Amino acid sequence: MKLNRRARAAVGLAAAAAATIAVTGCHTQGSDASDAKAGGTDKVTIMVGGLDKIIYLPAQLTQSLGYFKDQGVDVKLLTQPSGANAENALIAGQVEAVVGFYDHTQVMQAKGKCLESVVQFANVPGEAEMVAAQQADTIKSAADFKGKKAGVTSPGSSTDYLTQYFTAKAGVTTKDYTTVTAGAGQTFISAMQKGGIDAGMTTDPTITTLEQKKAGQVLFDMRTEAGTRKALGGLYPASSLYMSCDYVNQHKETVQKLANAFVKTLGYIHDHSAAEIAAKMPTDMKGGDDTLYTSAMNSSKGMFTTDGKMDGDGAANVLKVLSFANPDLKGKADSIDLSKTYTTQFVDKADSAS
C-alpha cells in the first residue's frame, strides 16, 4: 500500500521502538511444533496489536484471570504498537496467533494468504477520530483533512484503512493530506499536543486521556454500535483472535482451548463492572491512573461481544468499507470469500459447553 509523504521522524521512531517489547516472554515458531507440549500443556504465542489498548483487553484479562491455564494452554503474550506489525509477525511465522482487527483477514486474502478469525471480541472498531484542540475550529469533517497531518498507528493498520475510507468518502485523496505514523498511547498523545498531527485515529484509554487533558476532541466515535453505524453504515467487526488457516486446521484442539478461555473472559466482561475489570489489569497497562483507566473502560466496555461470534452482516460491511478505499481491495470485493475469513465453529462449542 502506498501513502503519500509518510512522516518517519521521532513519532515513528518511538512507535518502532515499542515494537520490540515482549510483555510475558519471547517465543519463536521454529522446528519445534507450534503447539509443543510442556508437561502436557499446549504452548502458544500470541502477538497483540497493543496490549495496553482496551480494544485488545481480552488478551491480558484472560491471562490475568487464569483462564488459559485452566484450559491447559501456556500462552505467551507479546505486543506490537499496531495491528499491521502484529500481522507481519504472524505471516513471518514468529507467532501462532494475533489479537488484532478482523479486517486484516480480508486484505490478506486479496494478497493470496489465508487468515481466519476464530473468536470475535467486538463488532465495532472501538476507535475514534480525534481532532487536536488547536485544530478544533478548522477540522469539522473529513473534508477538512486537506493540507492536514493525519495520525495512524502505522501504514497498513486498521486506523490507516478507516482514515482512507472517511477521507475518500469526503472527496479527499491520500495525496491531499500527510499520513503520520503516530503510534499509540503516550506517543500519540505527545504528537497531538505538540502539533505532530492535526487529527488522528486511536483507542481508549488514549481517547479518554486526550479528552481529560482537553488536548483533543472526538470527530467520529466508533466505540458504540450507534456511532459505528453512523460512521460506517453498519457494524464493523474488529478486535479478534485470528490465525493462519493452516494452523487452525492442523491444531483444532489447541484452538478450541483458546476459544473456551476467551469466551469465558467475554462473559466475565459482561458480568462485571468497569472497576472490577480494571482491578484485574496490570498497573503498568493502566498508565498509573486507575481512575482514568476505569473511566475509559466504562466508555468502551459495551463494545465487546458476549459470545465471541462474528456478525455476518458486519463482515460484509467491512468488505464494503475496505473495497471503497483500500488499494488492495478496490475492484476485488467479488473475489473475496468471506466464509474463509472467519469461523464460528470453536465459539459455538465453547458457548454450548459453558
Score class of each variant (00 low, 15 high):
Asp246Lys: 12
Asp42Val: 12
Thr45Ser: 11
Thr163Tyr: 11
Gln250Lys: 02
Arg8Val: 03
Gln120Asn: 15
Lys148Trp: 14
Thr305Asn: 13
Glu87Thr: 06
Thr187Ala: 04
Lys43Pro: 11
Lys252Tyr: 11
Lys301Asn: 13
Val99Lys: 00
Val152Phe: 01
Ala325Asp: 13
Ser299Gln: 09
Met222Pro: 15
Ala316His: 02
Ser244Arg: 12
Gly171Tyr: 15
Val44Pro: 10
Thr291Ala: 08
Cys114Trp: 09
Asp204Ile: 02
Gly147Ala: 08
Phe145Val: 14
Arg8Gly: 07
His104Trp: 15
Thr206Gly: 07
Arg5Cys: 09
Asp246Asn: 07
His251Gly: 06
Lys175Phe: 08
Gly195Lys: 09
Gly83Gln: 09
Phe304Cys: 01
Gln94Phe: 06
Gly185Gln: 07
Glu127Ser: 15
Ser157Thr: 10
Asn88Pro: 14
Asp271Tyr: 13
Gly183Thr: 08
Thr187Ile: 01
Val48Thr: 03
Thr341Phe: 05
Thr291Lys: 07
Gly156Met: 10
Ser323Phe: 08
Val48Ala: 09
Thr179Leu: 09
Ser154Leu: 04
Ile189Glu: 06
Gly93Met: 04
Arg229Trp: 03
Val23Asn: 08
Phe262Arg: 00
Ala259Ile: 00
Pro327Lys: 15
Met281Val: 01
Lys214Trp: 08
Pro327Asp: 15
Asp348Phe: 14
Gln217Pro: 12
Asn85Gln: 15
Gly287Glu: 07
Thr208Phe: 12
Leu258Arg: 00
Met297Gly: 06
Thr105His: 03
Ile207Pro: 12
Leu78Asn: 14
Thr209Gln: 06
Thr179Asn: 00
Asp313Met: 11
Gln256Asn: 01
Thr208Gly: 01
Thr179Ala: 09
Val255Trp: 04
Tyr342Thr: 06
Ala238Arg: 04
Thr153Ser: 06
Asp176Gln: 10
Ala325Val: 13
Ala279Val: 03
Ala353Ser: 05
Gly200Ile: 08
Ile46Pro: 06
Ala279Gly: 02
Ala279Met: 12
Leu329Ser: 09
Gly25Met: 14
Pro237Asn: 01
Gly126Arg: 09
Phe304Lys: 01
Ser117Trp: 00
Gly100Ala: 14
Lys332Ala: 07
Leu77Trp: 15
Asp176Ser: 07
Gln186Lys: 11
Thr163Met: 04
Lys320Phe: 03
Asn85Lys: 05
Thr20Arg: 04
Gly312Pro: 02
Glu87Cys: 03
Gly314His: 08
Phe145Met: 03
Gly66Ser: 02
Thr138Met: 00
Phe304His: 02
